[in-house]
Amino acid sequence: MKFSNLMTAVLLVAGLASTASAQTLQKINDSNKITVSYREASVPFSYLIGSSKSVGFSVELTDAIIDDVRKKLKKPNLEVATMPVTSQNRIPLLVNGTYDLECGSTTNNSTRAKDVTFAINHFYTGTRLLTKKSSGIKNYADLAKKTVSSTTGTTNAQVIRKYSADKNLDMQLILGKDHDDSLLLVENDRALAFAMDDILLFGLMANSKNPAALEVVGDSLQVEPYACMLRKDDPEFKKLVDGTINRLMKSGEFEKMYTKWFASPIPPKGVNLNLPMSEQLKANLKAMSDAPAL
């Protein structure tokens, strides 16, 4: 086969594969199965209690979307498969079709939007620091030439690295494979602070071995919206997912879910995060924007 013909064939096959993987509802309908992801340590969004049961605000959001998929496809017995993802593999596994929907604690930003599509934003947060109360750390300047942990594949690692360079702080950044691993680096004194979204830090602290020994400190670096991730170029599935979130926000069910996970005792220890809804999120209950972080 001539090289030009070979290239045409390769591009055609790649295009067909891309189209097939993008049309999520058709894929789900044909297989009678939807595969959704969960996170193992993103409290209170998506996390494990016990060895295999995932719970959290984003898990309930996922369940509501699945219910609407069942109704749309008229498949009340639709099979639901779940799989754990990490900050590092969540995007490639979604893009290649391994799973169909990610609602966890993923920041909606323009860089990621080159590879995936985001639904309506459902939370807003910013990077802060978790440290031991005994560390004396109160803000970023206290970490000059000190060791800081963050999690592989997160925007927070990029934010803290840039902040350190811009301010000439020469922080030594070490990366955990997941949020539990990054917290452990602080608990074991391998890092003085853990840089992450503040809500995740509060959740991790609440469920840590010794919550009273830890605190969240520092200014909030950049506002970041969380949103569910979908494959690109699939307007039909985005319309369904956005429709679910729209319905929950308009009906008041979203606010009830928020109260359950952010302002009430949550499993496994019954800790209450006592986190009022931010002004940005209150505004987005009306705007229903999917705008990325600036």
Rank of each mutant, 00 (worst) to 15 (best):
S18G: 09
Q23R: 14
L94Y: 08
L73R: 05
F45H: 09
A20L: 06
V95T: 08
Q88S: 13
S31A: 12
Y38R: 04
V95A: 14
R90K: 12
S87E: 11
V95P: 06
F45M: 04
A22Y: 05
P44M: 13
N32F: 03
R70P: 10
S54V: 12
A20N: 11
A14R: 05
S46P: 03
D100S: 04
L101Q: 07
V10E: 08
A17Q: 09
P84I: 03
N89Y: 03
A64R: 07
K72Y: 10
V13S: 14
L73H: 07
D30E: 06
E102G: 02
S18H: 09
D68R: 09
L16P: 00
D67K: 15
V36G: 01
Q88F: 14
M83D: 02
E60S: 12
Y38I: 02
A14M: 09
N89M: 12
R90A: 04
Y38A: 10
V13E: 02
V95C: 12
Q88Y: 15
G97M: 08
A81Q: 08
P76N: 02
G50V: 08
E60N: 11
I65R: 06
L16Y: 10
V59G: 11
L11F: 11
S87R: 13
P44R: 05
G15A: 12
S52G: 14
Y47G: 08
S52W: 09
N96I: 06
L94R: 01
V80E: 08
K72F: 12
P84G: 05
K27G: 06
K75R: 14
K74E: 11
P92A: 14
K53H: 14
N29A: 10
E102P: 01
G15I: 12
L101V: 04
T24H: 08
T19S: 12
S42A: 14
